[in-house]
Design a protein around this nucleic acid. Sequence first.
RNA 1: GUAGGCGUAGUUCAGUUGGUAGAGCACCUGUUUGUGGCACAGGUUGUCGCGGGUUCGAGCCCCGUCGCCUACCCCA
Length: 404
Amino acid sequence: MINALRGMKDLTFEESERFVHIVTTAIGISKKYGYNYIETPILEESKLFKRSVGESSDIVGKEMYQFEDKGGNDVCMRPEGTAGVVRSFIQAKLDRRQNEKFKFYYYGPMFRYERPQKGRLREFHQFGCESFGEASVYEDFTIIQMIGDIFKALGIGYDLQINSLGCPTCMPPYRQNLINFLTECQDELCEDCNRRITTNPIRVLDCKNEKCQSLLTNSPKLINSLCDSCDGDFKKLVKLLKSENISYHIDSNLVRGLDYYSKTAFEFVSNNIGSQSAIAGGGRYDKLVEFLDGKSTPAVGFALGIERIMELVQMPEISREGYYIGAMKQEGVDALFSLASQKRATDKVTLEYAPKKLKAHLKGADRVNARYCAVVGEDEFKEQKVWVKDLIQKQESVINWSDF
RNA sequence: GUAGGCGUAGUUCAGUUGGUAGAGCACCUGUUUGUGGCACAGGUUGUCGCGGGUUCGAGCCCCGUCGCCUACCCCA
């Protein structure tokens, strides 16, 4: 027997229904916010992610499905969605249309070669949005509001955490301050953090080691080192969240794992799904377009993890729907197809090809959750009629084929 | 890469100090010769993950291996 690869899952029945429910809900809401669908390839040049996500990140460093294709190209399966959308945005020269705004939504599979666990698969699915050309913090707020709408529509509770990661003006000096601070208490920090001091000092902030965290209480906070512009934007965001009654926590240690974020960073967290608790995350990435050789364009975006959200959504109860149609004798079966196609114009129809006793048909109708069980028996066949029972109202009638 | 837990029927799981497997659910049949869900009665279903070893005898003990899960790490 051949099984699916490690960390890759098949979705069927009520699981796949839940998946579709989440995606259609998210699509419906993002359309209301003016987003349009964008589809980009799953396979991209490895270079794209090395430059955008960052070589220092674990995603690029050790988690990419990367290989050489038959043409000798260094390619990989996308580990996240933003880079491809930005690449496409630049390739279509939308970055030249400087006064226009573009909003895209996407969804699809992402691949990371990690050790699978709860809420973490090697092939997983994200729904995401990217907004280009809008520098205002109002857009950051709007995106957060939109995610809130999606979770509300799905009936999911969450904790919103926000932070500002600064910009090229205030980030580098802060970074140096932090390095100085960390170097002083180097001996007491964990092994990983010591490595991070040189590779990616900002990541030390969200180390889960308790000892590191206690040392960090006195560390310089980026939130207190922001330049006037970043500080003003962050205060404005907080004000908007308050006035619109969106509850939040400022988490000065919230860092995005991907290098391209600046200014607003946020994460939606659930405490009901194990340790992989981030159900959505995103922020502003004003420098990424330029970084990938486009004309400087401000942008904000987010992605939500569909599998993680699947753990949280309750599906509305399914009710009986449509018709089950069967016959009791072979000759009746042949008459079923025109009846079925008649009904399919308006209803869901399940056809049973095997002649069976009435009782078996009623059971069959039950099994497929049909509302009506329609059977052509011996008597009905002679008179060109069909017996129909409403399985909820428990009423039955015999009607002409032409009136079915 | 590291650590812990688990692999027995379609499924959820039991299986005592080693004596060649059991329950619920599901499924099929009947009670009801043309009336579903409910009830009752009966019935079907297994390479006990795989490969070695110990033993008269292994689902159980030992070694190896594969897979799944959870956590670290990372992140959606």
